[in-house]
Amino acid sequence: MSVLGLFRREDLHSLAAPYALDALEPDERRRFEKHLTGCDRCAAEVRALAEDAVRLAWSQAAEPPAHLRSRVLAAVQRTPQESSRAPGREYAPQLPPHVWGTQSPPGRSRAPRARRPLFVPFATATAAAALVVASLFAVQAGRAQDELNAERDRAREIAHVLAAPDARASTGKDAQGRSIGVVASAAEGQAVVTLSGYGKLPTGQVHQLWLMRPDAQPRSLGLFDPDTPLVATGLDKVATSLAVTVEPDGGSPQPTTQPVVQLTLKSVGFGE
């Protein structure tokens, strides 16, 4: 290959990122797409970069006007579909090849479930949800990667709760201005609970979360890590409130101290 040819090839490779961002001029776009069909490495790279770009899209989600729905659904009724995949055609000419693609993205198989977090209903973005988010990110700086990964997993669980159609939020404050926040879905029996202002407990002590139910013993929902929301699952509908107590390390089977804070669950759809 001539030096010039090599140079031009390298030059084309460097267009992967602009291409993934839809930032090429039309003729460059066409040249690059042609190149893509013969370059598996580039196709894989473009896919990976395009997935990154799509994350930028998610963060912009906004409620469309109601009439858009009726318009689209009406149009669907009278719009015939294309017959499925025309044989011998690798991808629709008007669509980016990495969408129709020639091979799977490298090692990026995504669990479908993982997408759910992104459908956060806007109605739940209340003060308590903001509290959850704030406490999630307040302490990220300087953390090791595995901690960040754990955090992200938790973020996913949290988002799952937030995404429930019936998710509702509530906050409670005690006399000293310390607060407890909850975002809960009665249908899913799940809640995300955050504490703020309680600071670090002395070594050997831990904040434990309890589910209070009528005519039943409090049930432990778990122990708080400092500055970290707690995801509680398996909440029964009859639950009336949440309580937090200070317990010895490792927690207790039943509360051994008076609650430092308590929050009724009525406003988030429980206790019926």
Binding site: E51, V54, V76, Q81, R85, V99, W100, G101, R110
Partner: peptide, 25 residues
Amino acid sequence: TWRSAGRFDPSRGSALSWILTLAHR
């Protein structure tokens, strides 16, 4: 998305990226 849903191939990426890539373009 409705018209060309038949072209979507789940083995090549998620439906959501497919749709959002189209939307961005």
